[in-house]
Protein backbone atom coordinates (compact mmCIF):
# COMPACT_ATOMS: atom_id res chain seq x y z
CA UNK A 1 0.00 0.00 0.00
CA UNK A 2 1.31 3.41 -0.98
CA UNK A 3 1.91 6.09 1.62
CA UNK A 4 -0.14 9.27 1.77
CA UNK A 5 2.94 11.26 0.73
CA UNK A 6 3.47 9.01 -2.31
CA UNK A 7 -0.08 9.55 -3.47
CA UNK A 8 0.26 13.29 -3.00
CA UNK A 9 3.46 13.23 -5.03
CA UNK A 10 1.85 11.25 -7.85
CA UNK A 11 -1.01 13.75 -7.93
CA UNK A 12 1.53 16.55 -8.06
CA UNK A 13 3.27 14.95 -11.03
CA UNK A 14 -0.03 14.42 -12.80
CA UNK A 15 -0.97 18.09 -12.47
CA UNK A 16 2.52 19.12 -13.53
CA UNK A 17 2.20 16.96 -16.65
CA UNK A 18 -1.23 18.43 -17.39
CA UNK A 19 0.03 22.02 -17.02
CA UNK A 20 3.04 21.26 -19.25
CA UNK A 21 0.82 19.73 -21.93
CA UNK A 22 -1.46 22.77 -21.94
CA UNK A 23 1.52 25.12 -22.08
CA UNK A 24 3.08 23.21 -24.99
CA UNK A 25 -0.20 23.12 -26.88
CA UNK A 26 -0.57 26.89 -26.60
CA UNK A 27 2.80 27.75 -28.13
CA UNK A 28 2.91 28.79 -31.80
CA UNK A 29 5.51 26.09 -32.49
CA UNK A 30 3.07 23.41 -31.36
CA UNK A 31 0.31 25.04 -33.40
CA UNK A 32 2.60 24.86 -36.41
CA UNK A 33 3.53 21.25 -35.72
CA UNK A 34 -0.14 20.44 -35.29
CA UNK A 35 -0.82 21.08 -38.95
CA UNK A 36 -1.89 17.87 -40.61
CA UNK A 37 -2.86 17.23 -44.18
CA UNK A 38 -4.93 14.26 -45.12
CA UNK A 39 -3.16 11.94 -47.55
CA UNK A 40 -4.77 12.02 -50.99
CA UNK A 41 -6.20 8.55 -50.47
CA UNK A 42 -8.26 9.84 -47.54
CA UNK A 43 -9.16 13.36 -48.71
CA UNK A 44 -12.65 12.38 -49.76
CA UNK A 45 -12.39 13.33 -53.42
CA UNK A 46 -9.64 11.13 -54.83
CA UNK A 47 -10.57 7.58 -55.79
CA UNK A 48 -8.53 5.32 -53.47
CA UNK A 49 -8.33 2.87 -56.40
CA UNK A 50 -6.82 5.44 -58.77
CA UNK A 51 -3.31 4.55 -59.94
CA UNK A 52 -2.49 8.28 -59.70
CA UNK A 53 -2.28 8.14 -55.91
CA UNK A 54 1.09 6.40 -56.13
CA UNK A 55 2.49 9.23 -58.25
CA UNK A 56 0.87 12.50 -57.20
CA UNK A 57 2.59 14.65 -54.59
CA UNK A 58 1.09 14.45 -51.11
CA UNK A 59 -0.05 17.87 -49.83
CA UNK A 60 1.79 17.54 -46.53
CA UNK A 61 5.11 17.16 -48.31
CA UNK A 62 4.76 20.51 -50.05
CA UNK A 63 2.68 22.52 -47.59
CA UNK A 64 4.42 21.67 -44.32
CA UNK A 65 7.38 23.77 -45.45
CA UNK A 66 5.27 26.91 -45.99
CA UNK A 67 4.20 29.54 -43.40
CA UNK A 68 1.28 28.38 -41.27
CA UNK A 69 -2.26 29.64 -41.31
CA UNK A 70 -5.16 28.75 -39.05
CA UNK A 71 -7.76 28.13 -41.73
CA UNK A 72 -8.33 27.00 -45.28
CA UNK A 73 -5.37 25.08 -46.65
CA UNK A 74 -3.41 25.97 -43.43
CA UNK A 75 -0.88 27.89 -45.49
CA UNK A 76 -0.45 31.66 -45.35
CA UNK A 77 0.10 32.10 -49.07
CA UNK A 78 0.72 35.84 -48.86
CA UNK A 79 3.47 35.29 -46.29
CA UNK A 80 4.91 32.45 -48.39
CA UNK A 81 5.24 34.83 -51.32
CA UNK A 82 6.51 37.79 -49.28
CA UNK A 83 9.12 35.68 -47.52
CA UNK A 84 10.32 34.29 -50.83
CA UNK A 85 9.46 30.73 -49.82
CA UNK A 86 7.71 30.33 -53.15
CA UNK A 87 8.24 32.22 -56.38
CA UNK A 88 5.30 31.33 -58.59
CA UNK A 89 5.36 32.45 -62.22
CA UNK A 90 3.41 35.61 -62.99
CA UNK A 91 2.55 34.90 -66.61
CA UNK A 92 2.47 32.27 -69.31
CA UNK A 93 2.31 34.53 -72.35
CA UNK A 94 5.56 36.50 -72.68
CA UNK A 95 3.77 39.73 -73.71
CA UNK A 96 1.63 39.89 -70.54
CA UNK A 97 2.21 43.10 -68.60
CA UNK A 98 2.66 42.51 -64.87
CA UNK A 99 0.76 45.11 -62.90
CA UNK A 100 0.95 45.63 -59.12
CA UNK A 101 -0.95 48.39 -57.28
CA UNK A 102 -0.16 49.54 -53.73
CA UNK A 103 -3.28 51.42 -52.66
CA UNK A 104 -5.45 50.51 -49.69
CA UNK A 105 -9.22 51.04 -49.91
CA UNK A 106 -11.42 51.54 -46.84
CA UNK A 107 -14.77 49.79 -47.15
CA UNK A 108 -17.84 49.24 -44.98
CA UNK A 109 -17.55 52.84 -43.72
CA UNK A 110 -21.17 53.02 -42.60
CA UNK A 111 -21.64 49.46 -41.33
CA UNK A 112 -21.71 48.13 -37.79
CA UNK A 113 -18.74 45.77 -38.04
CA UNK A 114 -15.17 47.09 -38.12
CA UNK A 115 -14.04 48.87 -41.29
CA UNK A 116 -12.50 46.77 -44.06
CA UNK A 117 -9.06 47.90 -45.16
CA UNK A 118 -8.57 46.26 -48.53
CA UNK A 119 -4.90 46.09 -49.53
CA UNK A 120 -4.40 46.17 -53.30
CA UNK A 121 -0.77 45.10 -53.07
CA UNK A 122 -1.33 41.66 -51.52
CA UNK A 123 -4.05 41.05 -54.10
CA UNK A 124 -2.21 42.29 -57.19
CA UNK A 125 0.94 40.26 -56.55
CA UNK A 126 -1.31 37.26 -57.17
CA UNK A 127 -4.00 38.68 -59.45
CA UNK A 128 -4.21 40.94 -62.47
CA UNK A 129 -6.37 44.11 -62.38
CA UNK A 130 -8.64 42.52 -64.99
CA UNK A 131 -9.44 39.55 -62.76
CA UNK A 132 -11.62 41.81 -60.56
CA UNK A 133 -12.17 45.01 -62.59
CA UNK A 134 -14.56 46.00 -64.11
CA UNK A 135 -16.95 43.03 -64.11
CA UNK A 136 -16.66 42.04 -60.45
CA UNK A 137 -15.89 45.47 -58.95
CA UNK A 138 -15.95 48.93 -60.47
CA UNK A 139 -12.63 50.75 -60.16
CA UNK A 140 -14.27 53.97 -58.93
CA UNK A 141 -14.05 54.21 -55.12
CA UNK A 142 -17.53 54.18 -53.61
CA UNK A 143 -19.20 52.79 -56.72
CA UNK A 144 -19.55 49.22 -55.42
CA UNK A 145 -22.31 47.96 -53.18
CA UNK A 146 -20.90 45.18 -51.04
CA UNK A 147 -23.04 42.55 -49.40
CA UNK A 148 -22.04 39.71 -47.06
CA UNK A 149 -25.06 37.85 -48.39
CA UNK A 150 -23.60 37.88 -51.90
CA UNK A 151 -20.09 37.18 -50.60
CA UNK A 152 -21.34 34.09 -48.74
CA UNK A 153 -22.96 32.94 -51.96
CA UNK A 154 -19.60 33.03 -53.70
CA UNK A 155 -19.87 36.40 -55.39
CA UNK A 156 -17.78 39.59 -54.95
CA UNK A 157 -14.93 38.81 -52.46
CA UNK A 158 -16.48 35.34 -52.09
CA UNK A 159 -15.29 34.34 -55.54
CA UNK A 160 -11.91 33.65 -53.88
CA UNK A 161 -12.47 34.05 -50.10
CA UNK A 162 -14.26 30.93 -49.00
CA UNK A 163 -12.96 29.15 -52.09
CA UNK A 164 -9.17 29.32 -52.43
CA UNK A 165 -8.18 32.34 -50.32
CA UNK A 166 -8.70 32.42 -46.53
CA UNK A 167 -12.30 31.46 -45.69
CA UNK A 168 -15.21 33.65 -44.64
CA UNK A 169 -14.99 32.49 -41.03
CA UNK A 170 -11.92 34.75 -40.66
CA UNK A 171 -14.02 37.92 -40.14
CA UNK A 172 -11.30 40.03 -38.51
CA UNK A 173 -8.83 39.64 -41.33
CA UNK A 174 -10.99 41.77 -43.62
CA UNK A 175 -12.89 43.72 -40.93
CA UNK A 176 -9.55 44.81 -39.55
CA UNK A 177 -9.79 48.54 -38.79
CA UNK A 178 -11.42 49.89 -35.62
CA UNK A 179 -14.14 52.47 -36.17
CA UNK A 180 -13.36 54.59 -33.10
CA UNK A 181 -9.75 55.32 -34.05
CA UNK A 182 -8.42 57.81 -36.64
CA UNK A 183 -8.57 56.21 -40.07
CA UNK A 184 -5.30 55.64 -41.95
CA UNK A 185 -4.68 58.76 -44.02
CA UNK A 186 -2.98 56.95 -46.88
CA UNK A 187 -6.01 54.82 -47.67
CA UNK A 188 -8.68 55.72 -50.21
CA UNK A 189 -12.26 55.86 -48.93
CA UNK A 190 -14.60 53.52 -50.71
CA UNK A 191 -18.22 52.78 -49.88
Amino acid sequence: MRSRRGRRRSRYYLWLLLATLILIARTPVAADMARRWLPLVKDGIHDPKSPALRLLQQPGEALSRLPADVAGSQVNWTAALEQGRINPRTNILPETKIRVLDTDILLNLRGGTPIVRFPHRQHTVWLDCGNCHEQLFKSKAGANKFSMQLILQGEQCGVCHGAVAFPLTQCGRCHNTARDKPLPAAAVRGS
Binding site: I45, A62, S73, W77, P88, T96, N131
Partner: peptide, 19 residues
Protein backbone atom coordinates in the same frame (compact mmCIF):
# COMPACT_ATOMS: atom_id res chain seq x y z
CA UNK B 1 -9.25 16.75 -59.52
CA UNK B 2 -7.47 20.08 -60.00
CA UNK B 3 -5.30 20.72 -56.91
CA UNK B 4 -5.12 24.50 -56.49
CA UNK B 5 -2.46 24.18 -53.76
CA UNK B 6 -0.05 22.38 -56.08
CA UNK B 7 -0.47 24.88 -58.88
CA UNK B 8 -0.29 28.06 -56.79
CA UNK B 9 3.11 27.07 -55.47
CA UNK B 10 4.26 27.37 -59.10
CA UNK B 11 1.91 29.92 -60.68
CA UNK B 12 0.20 33.07 -59.45
CA UNK B 13 -3.56 33.23 -59.97
CA UNK B 14 -3.10 35.66 -62.86
CA UNK B 15 -0.99 33.25 -64.90
CA UNK B 16 -3.92 30.94 -65.61
CA UNK B 17 -6.89 33.18 -64.81
CA UNK B 18 -5.61 35.90 -67.14
CA UNK B 19 -3.25 34.45 -69.74
Amino acid sequence: VFPHWFHRVRFRCKACHTD
